[in-house]
């Protein structure tokens, strides 16, 4: 942030030599709009949410605008949030964006984008998202194969009609093909640049300052790709990297293990019954263990390992799924 402070002090001197802001008419222009322009950046952490907002805030500072940025970098993978609010314009008072007031929403992860969509302005909001999916652990609570996926099953088609403009880019894949998967956030910056009036030179200069020196080349490359992607898709040209593979929900999956119990060996100590995470074992009237709920058994082996009498044996006989879709997903 030392650089930012330096720029702040020399702001008035630089202003005269700067390029005019109104290069791209029809875009969000902080000079003409009375209200501040709000950009909300969300992700799951570790993808460069903060870097995107820093680049944007730095550009605004360089151009002599007022800018306020506030962030929460918790752990979205554990149920928390990772977002960064950037507000800039002639005058900015509050550092946070109210619900329904964001002009642009940039999501670095698909479900996070959907989660924050209500922050966009209903009529004019622009939604730019990476289609990369990072499934959090709490979305897979059920341990049974074929259990319902807790992750969003929405596709980009579901977003159409809910926002003014929406772009779902497979940015991570495109950045990986360009040479560095981590540059996906710069690709989205390129996409963002098409919605604002700042000139390309300003963007490229600040990105080159912010990213690690070794990755400047690839970052600038994907920045151009992001710009071209949006411009191409606005014109209706076929664009690469828009493929969205819907999640396959395994519909029917047969129990993959069979539990065989040697009744003569069981002494009814109930270790397996209490230790079973699915609570699918029980003692029968002869004080011998039996599998009460075969549907629940996931084949975790805990009962087998903890049986002091070797009475439980798990036969991991996997019945191949009949559904070809599921077969594909499993393979």
């Amino acid at each position: 942030m030392a650089k930012a402070k330096k720029n702040k002090s020399s702001r008035k001197v630089d202003l005269a030599n700067r390029m005019p802001l109104k290069l791209n008419p029809g875009r969000l222009d902080p000079e003409t709009s009375d209200e501040a322009i709000n950009v909300l950046i969300v992700g799951v952490g570790g993808q460069g949410v903060i870097m995107v907002s820093k680049v944007l805030a730095q550009i605004c500072q360089n151009l002599g605008l007022q800018v306020k940025q506030s962030e929460v970098h918790g752990m979205a993978k554990r149920g928390g949030v990772v977002f960064s609010h950037v507000r800039f314009g002639k005058t900015v008072w509050s550092p946070t964006i109210p619900m329904g007031k964001a002009d642009v929403l940039i999501a670095l992860e698909w479900a996070e984008g959907l989660r924050w969509m209500n922050y966009l302005r209903p009529a004019t909001g622009i939604f730019i998202t990476d289609t990369k999916r990072i499934v959090p652990p709490f979305a897979c609570r059920s341990r049974i194969l074929g259990a319902d996926i807790g992750y969003s099953k929405n596709t980009p088609d579901d977003v159409i009609g809910k926002v003014a403009e929406a772009f779902a880019i497979d940015a991570t894949d495109m950045a990986a093909k360009a040479g560095n998967e981590l540059a996906a956030n710069t690709l989205l910056l390129g996409a963002l640049s098409t919605t604002l009036t700042f000139s390309n030179e300003v963007w490229r200069e600040v990105i080159a300052q912010m990213v690690p020196p070794k990755t400047i080349e690839v970052n600038l490359k994907v920045f151009d790709q992001g710009q071209k992607w949006i411009e191409g898709s606005r014109k209706g040209e076929p664009v690469e990297g828009s493929a969205f593979v819907p999640l396959v929900q395994p519909e029917e999956y047969p129990m993959r293990t069979t539990l065989s119990i040697t009744e003569e060996w069981c002494k009814g100590c109930d270790i397996c019954i209490k230790m079973c995470p699915e609570r699918c074992l029980t003692l029968n009237k002869d004080q011998v263990v039996e599998l009460a709920d075969p549907e629940k058994c996931t084949g975790c082996h805990i009962c087998e390992w903890l049986c002091p009498d070797f009475a439980i044996s798990l036969n991991p006989a996997l019945n191949p799924p009949s559904n070809p879709k599921v077969q594909e997903a499993v393979a």
């Binding site: 002494k267 100590c269 903890l306 049986c307 002091p308 009498d309 070797f310």
Partner: peptide, 26 residues
């Protein structure tokens, strides 16, 4: 397969219900 390593004709073993020695043996 634990049965490969046990003298199956001696089973069930003499240990009390819930004895940890069986788990250690496995």
């Amino acid at each position: 397969e634990i049965q490969d390593y046990l003298r199956l004709d001696l089973f069930p073993h003499f240990m009390c219900p819930g004895c940890g020695h069986g788990i250690a043996l496995r």
